[in-house]
Amino acid sequence: MKIMNCPLNGPRNISEFVYGGEVKAMPNILTCTDREWADYVFYSENTIRVITEWWFHSPSGYWFIAERHTATDEIFKTYDPSELFNQRIDFEATSALEAEKPV
């Protein structure tokens, strides 16, 4: 079986991991247009190259980041998300609700 190196747990069978999508910047939900939101949610370059993506080690509930080639399936690097994200990101769900007015 293919082995992936978990930054927390070490080398494990790929079946212990769940793919979590490409790492990409989320648009501001309060100010972005529907088209921008659709682009974030549905659209993707989806091409052949090394991509940076979220992965989840299911038995330990641990999210991390991997750099993987989308054709050779070679995993070049895995690391803790703290290397890219150094602070907590809060989503202002309540203000979004207020902004939503009945049509």
Partner: peptide, 10 residues
């Protein structure tokens, strides 16, 4: 996701 036609044991 992957652009590859390999088969896997799992």
């Amino acid at each position: 996701p992957l652009y590859n036609t390999r088969s896997t044991l799992d």
